[in-house]
Design a protein around this nucleic acid. Sequence first.
RNA 1: GGAGAAGUAUCGAAGUGGUCGUAACGAGCUGCACUCGAAAUGCAGUUGUCCGGUUUCGGGCACAUGGGUUCGAAUCCCAUCUUCUCCGCCA
Length: 426
Amino acid sequence: MLDLKKIRDNKEKMTELLARKGFKADFDEILSLDEKRRSAISEVEKLKAERNKVSAEIPALKKQGKPVDNIFAEMRALGEKIAELDRTTNELDEKVFDLLSRMPNVPDEDLVGGEKENNQVIKVVGSKPEFSFPMQNHVDLCTKLGIIDYNRGTKLSGGGFWLYRGDGAKLEWALLNFFISEHLKDGYEFILPPHQLGYNCGFGAGQFPKFSDEVYWLDCDEDRKRNRFMLPTAETALVNMYSGEIIDESKLPMKFFAYTPCYRKEAGSYRAEERGMIRGHQFNKVEMVQYAHPDHSKESFEELVNKAASLIEKLGLHFRISKLAAGDCSASMARTYDIEVWIPSMGIYKEVSSVSNANDYQARRNNTRYRDSKTGKTAYVHTLNGSGLATSRVFPAIIEQYQNADGSITVPEVLVPFMGGQTVIK
RNA sequence: GGAGAAGUAUCGAAGUGGUCGUAACGAGCUGCACUCGAAAUGCAGUUGUCCGGUUUCGGGCACAUGGGUUCGAAUCCCAUCUUCUCCGCCA
């Protein structure tokens, strides 16, 4: 949610920033509605003050035996006026809120405009592996090794689902364990949240109302606000933990991570190009979230990027970090860096982590605040999130980058302890 | 899923249509006093938000949430949510 006061004061600047995201902002409508809203509030509050004043006098008048019927008649008329104006302000309130809640976050000023093609690679780690033998893709490798069962996954649940089997399940679990152990070392609090969330969580995270068709809903009432959905990422849960609360400033930054499967419809995705595990309806992810003081969210952002990168680096995979152009950042986010791993068979880098700073956009939506010791007032926290990491791209990357001539897979060194000492999958 | 009870400030809790209640009383917390210091004691302060002026300020709203009744609602009515107790179900 954008700050209406900022829109009032910096309309041009905000318009320009949103244009970088490819969003044409019409602030005039919202501002004129807000203008009307505020004048209606002023008006109705005067009337209410009057009503309160008269109401306070009534008991005394009654005691003195003075007639009050004429006052009642006047007050009834006043009450009707108030009710009418209340309706008006409520309607305006809702309209302003609705319009405001559909606007995406403004990007940080240092982001370039435009889409994907303007993303900037800011760091490359390692190099593309060279194979002295005919390289295989991860789908063939996994199938031959019997560690991923695509066909039976499809049989159970349809396209976009698969089964991890045997060493495949072990490898997947080892990855998750490795990530978890690293976050614990860094002092992040481990959270296992519910996988079913209420509408308010999707709204708070900034994913609704716009993307509410892209998640799986559990109930079929027509009013989604009363229904629950399967979380598309643990961020949706973590970022709403403190909604409506005022956090002690000294507790910031608060650092969390969670493991959950992520459930996504991924409607209209490119199944043919993205075979195997690249894009499924359910994948495992460890997610990091920080609640930060606005003055220090930049440091938190750097920390999250470094953490995500260090995980992939420790796995010995070739990857790069991209700073996303404004238009490639998701609606809620002010800045995003992607960590992209090399998938040899596809000849491209695929996102394994997306680290973002929402600034106060999410906190405004779900009312997460802290009390600022300098001003003594409440203010919105900054929320940041980053995958740390999603396995569904890391797994294929490992399979492909660590493949051997005989079709076996060398287990990355850091995972060996989590694989019970196993060094190769064959 | 069914029945019953309950949801008031940081916590406990009083308040069943106005005046005595933005909220008693108790605890906590903060400051000050007393003290060599501490404890005890005393005094004072201690919700959020919105609108308007912006240096003290004035006003509105909020007693789970949303409606309703009324001149006036924490208090009465309706719906919803949550918690607790009991019953049922329990792959």
